[in-house]
Simulated scan of single mutants.
Amino acid sequence: MTDFDQRFLKVVNNDYLLSNAFGMQHGRSPYTSAFYTWQGASAVFFSSCLTPFHRHNAIQLILDTQQEFRFRTKNSEWKTFRSLIIKENVIHQLDTNNSVQLIIYLDTATEIARLIRSEYLCESEVYAPQVNIFHFANSNQLQQALLRADPSLVEALMYRVLTYLSRKIGLIPSDPRVVRVEQAIAATPPTEISMKALAGEVCLSESRLRALFRHFTGIPLYRYILWNKIRFATNRIMAGDSVNDAAMEGGFTDSSHYHKMMVQVFGMAPSQFLKANLLNDFIVCERVK
C-alpha cells in the first residue's frame, strides 16, 4: 500500500455503508471499511474514488462486489474489470466506478504471493481472472463483511479467494515445532526475541528452523518476526503510546527504523495513525490460516 491508500482508512455509519453497498447515491467520498491486517496479508473494502497514479509494495487483488471498476497502468488505456491481480510496484490508477471493491494486499515474501505471481504474472503486470466475488460469498455473507468490523468474516472470504487462485494454499499440514515457535514469538516481548532462543525452544539449529518455518508457513522467519514487531508497536500506538515509545517497545532501533519498516510492509507511516485519528479502524488479526 502507499501513503495515498492510508488516508482513506476510515469507517462510516451503517446507513452510508448500506447505500454504498447497493449502488445508491451518497455525498461522502471516498469510502473504505476497516483495514484488516494479518501476517503477510491485508484487506479493505474500497469505493467512491478515482485514485491518482500510485503503486504498492505488495501484490494486489481487486474483486468488485457489484458491477465493474475501471483500471489503467501508466502505459495503458482505461479498461473495465470484475476482478484483477496486479504485480507489485506497478504504477496504476483505479476508478471505483460507483461500485465497491474488496482489495487484498499480499506481502511478496509469502508463499501465496509467489504462487500467484508465478501462476498469473510471469509475463504481464496485471491479470484478469475469470472469477466473481459471489463465487466465494453469497449476498448475505458479503453484506455482513461490509457492515461489520469482524476480521473472521473478511478472513474467511479472503481465504476462499486465495485458495481458489493459488490452488495450493492450505495443502501443507502444520508442524508442532512451527506452532511452538509462533507461540513463543507471540508471547515474548519483541525486544527479547532472538533466532538463537527460538531455535533452542524446539531443539533445532537456526538454519534448520528457518527452513522448517518457511516450508510450513510459506513465510521467511525473519519476515514473520518483523510482522510481529510491527503489530506489537502498532498495538502500543493504539493503546496510547507515542510513536517513539512504541518503536522501542516493538524492538526497533528507533522511530525512524519503525517508520521505514512500516512503510515497507504496509505502505503507511506510523504517525499517520495519530494524524488522521484512525486508530480504531486498523484491525490487527491473527495469522491467516
Rank of each mutant, 00 (worst) to 15 (best):
H26F: 11
M248C: 05
L165Y: 08
Q67A: 15
L115S: 07
H215L: 15
E125P: 01
R7L: 08
L204E: 08
L146N: 04
R177A: 12
Q101M: 13
N140F: 14
D254K: 10
H257T: 09
T108A: 13
A137I: 13
S47P: 02
L226V: 03
S242W: 07
L279T: 12
A149W: 00
Y222T: 14
K196T: 09
R223M: 02
L115F: 13
F282H: 14
M1T: 04
H54L: 04
S194E: 00
K275A: 14
H135T: 10
F71D: 01
R236S: 12
L198E: 02
L157M: 12
R160G: 02
N97A: 14
A233T: 01
G267S: 10
I59D: 05
S124R: 12
M1E: 03
L106R: 02
F22P: 00
W38T: 11
P30N: 03
L278S: 15
A21P: 00
D150H: 07
L147P: 03
V178H: 03
D150G: 07
R55G: 01
A239P: 03
S48A: 12
V131L: 10
E182V: 10
S76V: 09
T2E: 13
L157G: 00
S19V: 15
Q60N: 08
L279G: 13
M248I: 15
V284I: 15
E206G: 06
V90K: 07
E249H: 14
T65I: 08
T32F: 03
A269K: 13
F4T: 15
T37C: 14
N89W: 11
S207I: 06
I230F: 09
L162Q: 00
E68S: 14
E182A: 15
N20D: 10
D241N: 08
